[in-house]
Amino acid sequence: MISTRNLPFLAALAIFLLAYAACVLQFPNMLSTRVLGNLLTDNAFLGIAAVGMTFVILSGGIDLSIGSVIAFTSVFVAVVVGSAGVNPLIAFAAVLTISTSFGATMGLMIRFLGIPPFVVTLAGMFLARGAAYLISTQSVPISHPIIDAIQGFYFRFPGGGRLTAMAMLMLLVFLVGAFVAGRTRFGANVYAVGGNPQSAELMGVSVGRTTVGIYALSGFLSGLSGIAYTLYTSSGYSLATVGVELDAIAAVVIGGTLLTGGAGLVAGTLVGILIQGLIQTYIVFDGTLSSWWTKIVIGLLLFTFIVLQRGIVWYSDRRLVEGRLKEA
């Protein structure tokens, strides 16, 4: 069944496929597993964080702390593993615990102090960034046998492309995220809260638990994204990943999730990530374009999608009114 609810997702998918086809017509080399593999690897950390952002936006909220949490995570892991010599797996577990409780705390404040998510996560953004500076203002290189092993692990596609551990992690996160959103009670509650928190409460949804869960999940995935980013760059740097939360929001919205909450798909966010990655890849292939064109195209796409969503809402409202007039 194709409901109007999924129309933005389908539009995003169509745009991606058409754009990819157009790119391939101009640069036939872009149709290679190598390009595809790099596309996934280069955007892995953004994709992981964007899954968390999808849940937040589905619930009608926003999380501005993501970029800072990623930077904090990468610095923390680099310093703890690189300088202190702790086993990376222990460092990963520690940092995921920290980022998850950080997110949960923001969720608690949003719910029980009644502060808008924008304000709470803005404060969280400054806090996490500040904490990252506190640990180190330098770019800290990291090297450890376990990390080298993870970085060196990949599957080879036919054609020379590589599916790296980071890319696999991102795809796994998307898969699990899609299941959680679509097939669990928690996921249903997220959509319910995003639709109308008062109604959801009256229908017996625990809005408090759901809100805390959503921001804890976003915190966890930001931490995971930070780990992927550390693996990707082999270092931790407190000035890195400024504004990544905005890229994540862009991916979520381009992927068809309603910015006001209540409608959208996790799979759409993957398409949103791929569209952003595709634009970057095209610019690399072209070689003459400034990289700022990425921002311009993403800006235009965002406008298009917001207008499209408005149009769909308006259209379905009108159809409903017409339907009622016919009944009468």
């Binding site: 299941f179 679509g182 009670r185 996921g187 249903a188 959509y191 109308n196 009256l202 229908m203 209540g262």
Partner: peptide
């Protein structure tokens, strides 16, 4: 009362969805 952004079935069973192996 109900949630307009969910389907009829989702509205009827919100919070008490039938599950199999933990999934709705």
């Amino acid at each position: 009362n109900l949630l307009e952004n969910l389907t009829v079935a989702e509205n009827l069973f919100l919070g008490r969805q039938p599950r199999r192996f933990g999934l709705v």
